[in-house]
Structures are given as structure tokens and as C-alpha cells.
Write a protein that binds this DNA or RNA. Structure first.
Lengths: 237, 237
DNA sequence: TGTTCGTAACGAACATGTTCGTTACGGTGC
DNA sequence: GCACCGTAACGAACATGTTCGTTACGAACA
């Protein structure tokens, strides 16, 4: 099996066509997505754009999930990281970065789903993590907690955006929401007293308010929840 | 468009075939999944099992996501809720329920992905939420916080299981993990000092340890993070 | 009984992701 | 120059989810 990178520099020139490259494929994918939406970034559409066949793309990307991860990494360049080196309360700045990240995903919700499964590992992603860790460090959060917490922060943002992807769709999402609403409101006080009491609360809040609370809640939790004792694992190198 | 429920009771009998029903379809899906795995629960396979055509299933389920949500709700019957009415520390019991939920998803990881997008709204799901709310209530967590927090608890469990689905796969997952590992370890101290310092930590911990910490962290956060002031929204009903 | 209407069930068709066997190219060695 | 090898690129094929137009059934009505 081939190595998936832009490494396999083509050593051949079929009839006057430039050889494929991984960056070229990703760039084409980003272009199509900006012009037509993520759903249009199909292997066939991409191949057409690159004047090749869909099967040829698999030399450079393992599958669409990997392609999406790469596309997402490109988009992460748009996340506003200026708060990392700004003045002010570290918690608010941390939230600002996270909201910026979430906003990027909200604009391309289909990517959020993919990102839950195939996470990016490119330059922009690393820069984002570095920024988050810097802010947690500034807030005095122990490294061990920050290391695991940063994962959860991004997971929350990503999963929320992925859910939003569905919520944003028309008829189907509305019916699902209706079903959940009905189920919650219909819960009997006898069998589901807590749900009955909190039905309205469970469904309350604007998405951005819930998200904001979620980040506050996570930051609090991360800051004050010690990691399990490191078990008998010797220090590395 | 038709109403998606088991309501459309068939008024016809084509050549000696029992009319389709939604519960029947879901039961068949669960059966196939138990015997052959979730990936085998295709519309065609299901239709074959039910001696009908794949297109006929769409009268009863909108799409595979909805089918998966229904299947998941069936499986939630297996979540151990005995801790809800047991003795002991409410936090530990809450974690026990959550771990049981996560375990169910780990056994059927493909469902976790679907559940992030099309969440169940059936009986078992409600019972689970009721149990979680009861435990948070017992711990003195304000209702408003519990109402929003329960969402995040389940989201964390579900997203973690969905990630696990990928991690558990062989070659592809290993390569992705390698890519992330390389990226993290390769980060230069000059540009990514925090990552360089925490590289080992970022990747450390057995899945169950990280999950356990995650739940502790979330529970702490939920318990102590007040909800935003209710803004000028008048009381409903 | 005949007609009308709503819809469960059906079949053909389409789009999409992916695999696998084949082709053709470029590099290397003799 | 020729033969061999590795692999980028290709094309056919397959599985899968889903849509849309059509058929056939049962209920209601005159």
C-alpha cells in the first residue's frame, strides 16, 4: 500500500497533464467547497476539476474522511488566535478562541461531523492547540489537566457544530426536534418526575448561550479536576 | 409526505406478505446487527430480511440515521440504571451510569456516530435522562445547570465512543494516530513550546482513564458553573 | 356495483465512495 | 539498448443510500 502524503512525487507525465499532488487535491477541494458547498466536493467532482479519474485520488488521500480532515486544517487558518497574545482575562480569551473555532465549523457543518472521526493533524490544528494550551497555562492550569482538557474542549465545540449541522436543516431536523420536544413534554410526572419538572429547561437557551455556558463549565472543570495519579508509569526519556 | 411512525397501519395485503410496520423494521435491524454487525444493516439487507424492497422502508423511517437512532434506543435498554436508586456517593453512581452508557456505544461504535447527528427520542433514552437528572438532583445541582449539563455529559460519552470507533479500526486508524503522534512530537520548541512540553501528556492515558477523568471534570464543572441570567424571556405556558 | 381517492409498496434509476485488476511511465541495472 | 520493477493513473465494477414515478390495494361514497 502506498504512503499517503505528497511524497509520491510523480515520475511520469501522461499526455501533457500535470501530475497530481496532495496539496493540489486539497486546494481543489477547498475551492469547490467555497464555490459550491461541501456536499459538492465529491471524488468525481474533484477528479473532474483536476482532469483525472476519481480512483486516482486514492493514491493521495485514503478516503473522504482524510480529505475532509485536510480541508478542515486549511480552514483552521481562519480561526482568530489574536486573543492568545492579547491582554485581559485568560478565561474570556480562551472562550473567544473556542467560539472562533466553533464559528468556522458552523460555517462548514459537514466538516464537523468528519472531524469527530478523522481529526486534522496539520499545521493549523497544531497552532490552535498550542494557543489553547498557552491560555490554559497562563491561567495556571496544571499541564497534565490541560493536556487532556484541550481534547475535551475541542470535542465539545466540534460535536456541537456537528449537531448544529443537523439542526440547521429544514424539514427533517424540525421533525426530529418535534419528536424530542413531544417526548420530553409528554413525559409523565409519575414515571419521569425530573424531566417533567425540567422539560422547558432542557430545551431552553439559544445555541450560542448554551455553547458559552458549556465552555465556562468545561474551563471550570478542567481547572479544578486533578488528573488520576500517574500509576506506575516511569517518566519518559 | 407521509408521517413517519408506526401509525400508517397497512390496509392491504399484497400476496400473503405481512404488512410492514416500523417496530418490525427496527426489530429486524436489531436482529441483523446482533448477528452480523451494524455495517450489515443496509436497506437492502433489511428489505431482504423483511421480504420487501428497500424503497418500501422509507415509508417508515426517513433515512438510515433515523433507523440508527431507533436501534440505539433499543440498545439503551441495556444501560445499567440500578445505581440511580442505590446507596453511595452520587458522583460515583453518576459516573457508573455514564460508563455503562458509553460501554453500550463502544460495543456498537457505528451507532455512536449516528447518535451525534440523529439523537434517539424513545423510551429508553428518556429513562436514561431521567436517571441522570435524578442523580444530579440528589447531588444538589441546580435544575437549570443539570438541564444543560446532561446534554454535555451524553455528548461527551457519545463523541468519545464515536472517536473510539475509528481508533479501534486497524491500519487506517493506526496511520492517523501515527500522523498525530508525529505532528505532536515533531512540534518545535521554538514555535510550539507548550506542545513540545506536553507532547507525551497529550497522548497519554488509557481510554478508560481519560473517560473517567472527563466525567469527573464535567460533573465538577456542571455542579459549580451557574447558568447565564435568564434574559428577558417570560415564563412559558 | 362502479368510481374516486389516498397511500403502501414497488422498480428503475441515479449519485456516490471505493476496490481491484490493468496499463503505462520513469528509473535502474546490466 | 533492453529488461525489469515499482507505482501513478486508469477504468470497470460493485455496494449502498435514496429519489421519483408508477402500480395496486382498500376504504369511502354515490
Amino acid at each position: 500500500m502506498t504512503v499517503h502524503s505528497d511524497g509520491p512525487r510523480s515520475r511520469r507525465e501522461r499526455p501533457a497533464k500535470p501530475a497530481l499532488t496532495r496539496p493540489g487535491i486539497i486546494a481543489a477541494a477547498v475551492e469547490i467547497m467555497r464555490g459550491e458547498g461541501l456536499e459538492r466536493v465529491t471524488m468525481r467532482r474533484l477528479a473532474q476539476q483536476l482532469d483525472t479519474g476519481p480512483a486516482s485520488l486514492y493514491v493521495y488521500v485514503r478516503n473522504t474522511a482524510e480529505l475532509h480532515a485536510a480541508v478542515l486544517d486549511e480552514l483552521l487558518g481562519a480561526v482568530d488566535l489574536t486573543p492568545v497574545h492579547a491582554e485581559g482575562d485568560w478565561r474570556e480569551r480562551l472562550e473567544t478562541v473556542l467560539v472562533s473555532y466553533t464559528t468556522v465549523l458552523f460555517e462548514h457543518p459537514g466538516l464537523a461531523r468528519s472531524a469527530l472521526v478523522a481529526r486534522p493533524s496539520g499545521e493549523h490544528y497544531l497552532t490552535l492547540i498550542e494557543g489553547l494550551l498557552a491560555l490554559l497555562d497562563e491561567g495556571g492550569v496544571p499541564g497534565a489537566q490541560a493536556a487532556w482538557g484541550v481534547d475535551v474542549l475541542l470535542q465539545h465545540a466540534t460535536a456541537t457544530a456537528a449537531e448544529h449541522a443537523t439542526r440547521g436543516r429544514a424539514a427533517g431536523a424540525q421533525q426530529e426536534w418535534d419528536a424530542l420536544t413531544r417526548a420530553l413534554h409528554g413525559a409523565r410526572e409519575q414515571t419521569h418526575p425530573h424531566i417533567a419538572a425540567l422539560a422547558a429547561e432542557l430545551l431552553s437557551g439559544a445555541p450560542q448561550d448554551r455553547l458559552s455556558w458549556g465552555f465556562h463549565m468545561l474551563i471550570n472543570g478542567i481547572a479544578q479536576t486533578p488528573r488520576p495519579t500517574p500509576s506506575q508509569e516511569p517518566p519518559r526519556h
